[in-house]
Computed example of a mutant assay.
Amino acid sequence: MQKNVRKDLLGPVRIWDLPTRLFHWALVICVLGSVISAKVGGNAVVWHMRLGYAVLALVAFRILWGLVGGRWSRFSSFVYSPAALLRYLQGRPKADDHFEVGHNPLGAYSVLAMLAWLLVQVGSGLIADDEIASTGPLIRFVSGELSLAWTSYHKSYGQWGLFALVGLHVAAIVFYRLRHRNDLIGPMISGDKQLPSAVPATIDSLASRLFALTLLGACIAAVYLLVSLETV
């Protein structure tokens, strides 16, 4: 593991490509704005829905980028087996484990849980009905009973589950900073980590960034078409 490597043998290695970093901070802003606008209510509900659409586009992009993006942003680099998780918890990694490079097993599972939870939360919002002034754009495709059930979920279990996942994420950042002196925020800003030079860097070229922008544009277009079904 990295902690056994002399510090003078470490150097900056690009781990998080720019699309991944921009996705991360854009998602933070959109989720925070969505929560605040929901609590404010009134006319702010319009922004709650808009930000929900943005979250859906971002999550869709991240799923695609997890398949074709930079090396350490791909799911194949951080979808760990239960055995790998056990090795991590026991502090007995194998030589080919890369727990200190991208996401460690706990971080990986939290990322996957967050993406899945956001998909369900936004999906429930698309068919929700607050019985006051706003309804989800896809509400006409489901029964009233199903809509009310998912509306209840959206406002209760979905909301509090999201708060719990965000809280765990923040707690993990603080824990690794204080306990292991491991800064998780810095690399998500700069893209680089201090690692042995043998660690392969991710591709973060102009071409890969333009490709990511194209994927994001396709995701935005897809979400726009989806929510436009309300008026078709």
Rank of each mutant, 00 (worst) to 15 (best):
S228E: 03
S152G: 11
G186W: 10
A172G: 06
S205W: 13
E145I: 12
G144A: 08
L58I: 09
Q159F: 08
H103G: 11
F75H: 09
L162V: 10
L216T: 09
V227L: 11
V28E: 12
W160D: 05
H48E: 07
D17S: 12
L67G: 07
H98Q: 08
P200V: 11
P137I: 05
L89T: 00
I139D: 05
M114L: 15
Y88G: 04
G33I: 01
L213N: 10
R92H: 13
L206W: 03
Q90A: 14
V199R: 00
A164I: 11
A54G: 14
H154N: 07
A95W: 02
D8T: 09
V40S: 02
I132W: 03
L10T: 06
I203C: 09
T151D: 14
P19K: 03
D8A: 10
L22M: 13
W25Q: 02
D129A: 03
S208W: 01
Q121E: 11
V5T: 06
I139P: 05
D130W: 05
H169T: 10
F141H: 07
F163T: 04
R71A: 10
V79T: 11
W47D: 11
G158W: 06
V79F: 13
L215V: 09
N4I: 10
P196N: 11
V223D: 10
G66A: 08
A116V: 15
V223G: 07
S208A: 03
G41V: 08
L27N: 08
R140M: 08
Y157D: 02
G217V: 01
Y53W: 14
G11V: 01
L229A: 13
P196K: 01
G69Q: 12
I173K: 11
L195G: 05
R92L: 05
H103V: 02
D97F: 03
A116E: 05
S205A: 12
G42Q: 04
S208Q: 07
G144S: 04
Q194W: 00
L225Q: 11
L27I: 13
P12Y: 04
V232C: 09
Y224K: 03
H24N: 14
F99W: 01
L86R: 14
L162I: 12
L67D: 07
R209H: 10
Y80A: 10
D97K: 07
A149N: 08
L119G: 15
Y109H: 11
V46T: 08
A54H: 04
G217P: 04
T20D: 05
R14C: 02
A60N: 08
Y153K: 12
W47F: 15
A44F: 15
L195A: 05
D97R: 06
L9V: 06
V111G: 13
L112I: 15
R92E: 14
